[in-house]
Design a binder for these strands. Structure first.
Lengths: 350, 350
DNA sequence: TTGAAAGCGCTACCAG
DNA sequence: CTGGTAGCGCTTTCAA
């Protein structure tokens, strides 16, 4: 019946004005206390803090950002958040952002380049302090130049956009792939096939290039017949495996250019009952539980994320100068699947 | 020397005022065109659109939100974005949000309950339209009640907060676990161990309860000695396995309460060379490539995400009424690891 | 040390 | 149909 606060109605959120009224001080004083600015009498500080607590006040970030022009938020765009590689990447960025008390606005886009552009534009409307981006293949990202000029730092990860000079964090795809080939050669293999992901994404292409470089390094001839284009489907890999087996001089080992392809090859080999040696780019969870355990080229997605975040924050902090590209190394995790398989059967001599 | 735009300086971003000036119309007209409101002369619409393009204008979302009070953004808090389960969950939410042209602000928190509260508060300062939350264990979330009363819809997923009546989406943990036990019983197992995750998180506890229910359903006695607490470490699981094997009447099968534990058990069995039957809650990528392929209780994290998003959006749209809890079913993916292992060796009779 | 007041860029309500 | 104008909640001069 009276105006005592009942429980139901969605009570409007408290603003600084409310706090000021309650604490019996001016609006500016509240602002100063809330943002931790010095030069306020201790008594008033206490009064304000009490009012804040009582009113459950929390500053409206939108008003704050509108006024100051800085949002304490960075954006991140990945092509597929469900992919463990990308989610680990986000994890690395999150970690660094948290340390700086920044929020990360993550958007996951599909392969549709138009949609990617729409989402990125949406993100940018947020007047983010900066942006970390896995460039969607085929997307026209030139509008981002504009954005960078307007003052939003942008860092690309995993793969660079075409035709732009940008801050970038990638791994040494070529070096890693070459190392895989050297490893297989050392194990005695002379016919090494390459399963390249058909999409021809930047990383696959670099890794295929590394495959050729590795062959050259160990003095093996490059044979186009040994390079097949596949995707992550087991069927497709099975088909490719079959075709390879019909070659006059079939391969004894496979290098696969990415994690999903490696898993598909594993599935195909199981289906076919074949046991070609295998080294795959990208580590995965259960590699060690395969039979035999799968040797992989390991990259550290969290480290990539951290490096990208560090680079971005240094730009946000005002570092100028030429664009920077950071190339992270890879590591060979040797687990046995690269070895020459025994000539006939797997039955050990007892 | 003159004021022609050179390339270097970080040119201030265009505002509606700039667009209005350029197009020779009023500010309100620009606002109308930009937000697609009807009732503007076609000629002016075109003029504004041209100016927008020329100035590369994009609406400042902060000002928009400040004015309208709605941010077209929902928040999502997960405990570990790098976990494939949670990233798939986010993927499901993203999918639905995208369809509604909403952005998702994802924050990943650690196990530290204080930090979780800080991050959630930060998120809430953004005046989000709604929040989807995986309740961090042990965190005191009562301050969220306040928030809900202030009008921010909140949906919990995967596990409910303690002591709050909330909108919720979970899977039928108990039913799934009971199904696993029934499956093992059907395969002939009479001594079934349960590997429960030590943290005692909600899901593990529910699944352990389901294990007991399953035993009861098939008329098997509950034996506390068969229930062990483990984490995701291979060592710990190895130890547990060893201990179990020393029992006078050792188990012939294992039910494991979550994906990470299942993988650890797999690793432990490989280490020990044991081959107990195994059914694990949570599916994983390479289950089919294990030897034998691992039978799992499958839940669909993307479906959980979608359901949570739908529930949230219906609240945002104004649906009132009692809280709703949605329980999603699980599915048994039978792959062979639940079968009775052959009495002696795995060598087939030729 | 403090409060009043002028906006940040936008929307929505006016009167025309 | 259109433009002027009053704020959304906050920060930041500027005087007092």
């Amino acid at each position: 019946m009276d105006d005592a606060p009942t429980n139901e109605p969605a009570s409007r959120r408290a603003t600084m004005k409310d706090v000021a009224a309650r604490a019996g001080v001016g609006l500016s004083t509240v602002s100063r206390v809330v943002s931790g600015k010095p030069g306020v009498a201790p008594a008033k500080v206490r009064a304000v803090e009490r009012a804040v607590r009582e009113l459950n006040f929390s500053r409206n970030d939108f008003a704050h950002t509108l006024r100051t022009g800085t949002s304490a938020t960075i954006g991140m765009v990945v092509t597929n958040i469900s992919d463990p590689f990308f989610s680990a990447l986000v994890g690395g960025v999150e970690e660094r952002a948290r340390a700086r008390d920044q929020l990360v606005l993550v958007a996951s886009v599909t392969d549709d380049p138009e949609e990617a552009e729409r989402i990125i534009r949406r993100l940018l409307q947020r007047r983010l302090d900066g942006l970390i981006l896995v460039a969607p293949e085929d997307a026209d990202l030139t509008f981002l130049e504009e954005e960078r000029r307007a003052g939003t730092p942008i860092v690309f990860v995993d793969q660079p956009p075409t035709g732009m000079d940008v801050d970038l964090v990638v791994v040494d795809n070529e070096g890693g792939a070459a190392g895989a080939v050297r490893h297989l050669h050392r194990a005695g293999h002379r016919r090494i096939a390459c399963f390249a992901h058909i999409s021809g994404r930047y990383t696959s292409a670099r890794r295929e290039a590394g495959y050729y470089r590795g062959l050259a390094e160990v003095g093996l001839p490059a044979d186009r017949a040994l390079v097949v284009s596949v995707d992550d489907e087991v069927d497709v890999c099975t088909e490719a495996l079959l075709e390879l087996s019909r070659l006059p001089d079939p391969p004894t080992a496979i290098f696969s250019t990415n994690g999903r392809t490696t898993k598909a090859v594993l599935g195909a080999q199981r289906l076919l009952g074949t046991h070609l040696a295998l080294v795959g780019f990208d580590d995965f969870d259960l590699a060690v539980l395969m039979t035999p355990p799968t040797t992989t080229i390991v990259q550290d997605p969290e480290a990539i994320g951290r490096a990208a975040a560090d680079l971005l924050f240094s730009r946000i902090a005002g570092r100028t100068g030429p664009t920077q590209r950071i190339i992270l190394g890879t590591r060979l995790a040797e687990r046995g699947s690269g070895e020459m398989s025994p000539p006939v059967a797997a039955v050990p001599v007892s």
